[in-house]
Design a protein around this nucleic acid. Structure first.
Length: 199
DNA sequence: CCACGGATGCGCT
DNA sequence: GCGCATCCGTGGA
């Protein structure tokens, strides 16, 4: 299978489009000289306007400044001693990003099992912090460009996979519940929560 | 220095 | 599957 990194222009769009289109793409890290990763099955969009759950909604700080920066950058933030991985989207200058919440593990299973300390495939990359642990994504990647040379990149598979996308309410946010900005691959068992479907 | 953020993992039923 | 204790980086005192 030949892999092509997603073009820069892919990320130069609004967060909802990027979140939708990232489903089914391959996320691969090549940290510690080992390839690990899998198919993206769950994402959430965070919008620059009218989205109070967005980290950049109120003010720009050292921690969230990457969200205001160029589309295609890696934004890693900590929550309760865990890391979550986001991809910055357009427009530059306003806080917007896509949180990658779950992947279906396919590459480097053994390494991911070691990093996670479990054999359980279903729970290996199901959830934003678990996925970071499995791929060894941490704060050191924050602000870097998503690219092969930076050891973390998203690829397009050559053959198009057909999948059904469902759009649901987001998980774990304490505000802006009403926005249905979570995208999942329907009926995929590697999605992080029982699917409360919105539409 | 202290309050805050919410996903995770475990123990239970 | 559900409830709850635990995890520590960050920002604002």
């Amino acid at each position: 299978m030949k892999l092509t990194p997603l073009k820069k222009s892919f990320y130069h769009r609004d967060a909802e489009s990027v979140a939708h289109d990232l489903l089914g793409k391959l996320l691969i890290s090549e940290i510690d000289n080992t390839r690990t990763g899998g198919l993206i099955v769950e994402t959430e969009a965070y919008l620059p306007v009218g989205d109070t759950a967005c980290h950049g909604a109120f003010k720009k700080t050292a921690k969230n400044s990457v969200m205001f920066d160029k589309p295609g950058l890696i934004y890693v933030y900590s929550i309760h001693a865990k890391w979550c991985f986001n991809i910055v989207t357009a427009p530059e200058g306003q806080a917007s990003a896509v949180l990658v919440r779950a992947i279906e593990p396919t590459i480097g299973l053994e390494t991911m099992q070691q990093r996670r300390g479990t054999q359980d495939l279903v729970n290996l990359c199901r959830g934003p912090a678990r996925l970071c642990q499995a791929l060894n994504i941490d704060k050191s990647l924050n602000g870097m460009l998503l690219s092969k040379s930076n050891r973390l990149c998203v690829y397009q598979k050559n053959e198009e996979s057909d999948l059904t996308v469902a759009k649901t309410v987001r998980i774990g946010v304490t505000s802006a519940h009403e926005l249905a900005l979570r995208y999942i691959v329907r009926d995929n068992r590697f999605v992080s929560e029982p699917k409360k479907l919105n539409q």
